[in-house]
């Protein structure tokens, strides 16, 4: 498979372009995604490519397939759900996933339940995507990791890719999926580069984890940006002669327990790492599954590293305290090693 190097941001954008080109039902909605090109520039160039008027500041009107919206997250998601129920395939960009909190009712109480409540009469092929997690001093109201909240909800699918290739493969699957999908990016990942398959049909099925690094002594299990934190920790452990395997979960719901359990069966030790608040975050679910199903394989209790249980503080000094880093992973490893 021939590949090309690109950033995570470009991988997300290119996938949207390929799918919009392939299917006229795919369209984008979001705040400042069109004329302004997206706050993280993920939608750069798409307004011009799919727009009806170029570089026009004065005359109102929407570009048909790249829809600039008011700042009304519940309205945007509800609109998209309605359009999806009759066969369009909206991709909604949340400027940050923190703002999807406003749309929780539409996502949880509407999108996630429609297929069930209509006994399959209506489908909701909707993607809600955008950056989740902390960035750099965005403080308490703008730094949420939402994936664990959504992965609690039957009827939703939730993915959190860590690399450009995973972003590409999973986004294609998300857009083609007939169910509502939450696609979590991360501000810290947009700039990272990686090799991405060029094939316009390249996709990654949901519910398939990835071994990001092979190892034999313990398993570090993570998703999204924390995969990179685990890789850094694994590098340091290697210097100490400890071989850590890193499992990139990447799909939270459905969850690939098979790959996770196989890794634990091999290494006999596991630490689950997630950026969300430690208390009740999705890593707790993964840790519980391992404890439930792999009891005989485990040589130590399942370790867990999560974000501190506090609203995200603004001060960089305090913020860095809150977000898990490689040292925190090493400390958790020491506890069970």
């Amino acid at each position: 498979m021939s590949t090309i190097e690109m950033t995570y941001r470009d991988a997300v954008r290119q996938t949207m372009v390929e799918e919009m080109d392939a299917n006229p039902d795919v369209f984008l909605m979001g705040e400042d995604i069109g004329r302004y090109r997206g706050t993280f520039r993920v939608t750069e160039g798409l307004y011009d490519k799919y727009g009806v008027e170029k570089n026009d500041f004065i005359v109102p009107g929407i570009a048909r397939r790249v829809v600039d919206t008011p700042i009304v997250e519940p309205g945007i998601v509800g609109f998209a759900i309605g359009a999806a129920m009759v066969g369009l395939r909206p991709i909604v960009e949340m400027m940050t996933m923190s703002f999807s909190i406003l749309a929780l009712d539409q996502i949880i109480n509407h999108a996630a339940k429609i297929h069930y409540m209509t006994a399959g009469q209506a489908k909701v092929p909707l993607v809600v995507r955008g950056p989740g997690g902390a960035a750099n001093q965005l403080s308490a109201q703008h730094s949420h990791s939402m994936e664990g909240w959504y992965a609690h909800v039957p009827g939703l699918k939730v993915v959190a890719p860590a690399t450009p290739a995973c972003a590409k493969g999973l986004l294609r699957t998300a857009i083609r999926d007939d169910n509502p999908v939450i696609f979590t990016e991360n501000p810290g990942l947009y700039g990272i580069k990686g090799d991405v398959p060029e094939d316009r049909e390249f996709s990654i099925p949901f519910g398939k984890a990835r071994i990001a690094r092979q190892g034999t002594d313990l398993s570090l299990i993570a998703y999204s940006r924390m995969v990179h934190v685990c890789l850094a920790a694994a590098e340091q452990l290697a210097e100490r002669g400890i071989s850590a395997e890193v499992v990139d979960v990447r799909s939270l719901l459905p969850l690939d327990t098979e790959t996770i359990f196989a890794s634990v069966a091999k290494t006999h030790r596991a630490v689950v790492v997630y950026e969300d608040w430690k208390n009740g975050g999705y890593g707790a679910e993964i840790a519980a599954r391992i404890a439930e199903e792999c009891f005989d394989d485990l040589d130590a209790p399942v370790g867990r590293v999560g974000g501190l249980n506090v609203p995200m503080p603004y001060s960089r000094v305090l913020e860095l305290e809150c977000i898990p880093n490689a040292d925190d992973v090493l400390a958790a490893v020491n506890k069970i090693a």
């Binding site: 403080s139 603004y314 001060s315």
Partner: peptide
């Protein structure tokens, strides 16, 4: 005390 920042 540094918890809020410019916006808060």
């Amino acid at each position: 005390r540094g918890k809020g920042g410019s916006m808060h």
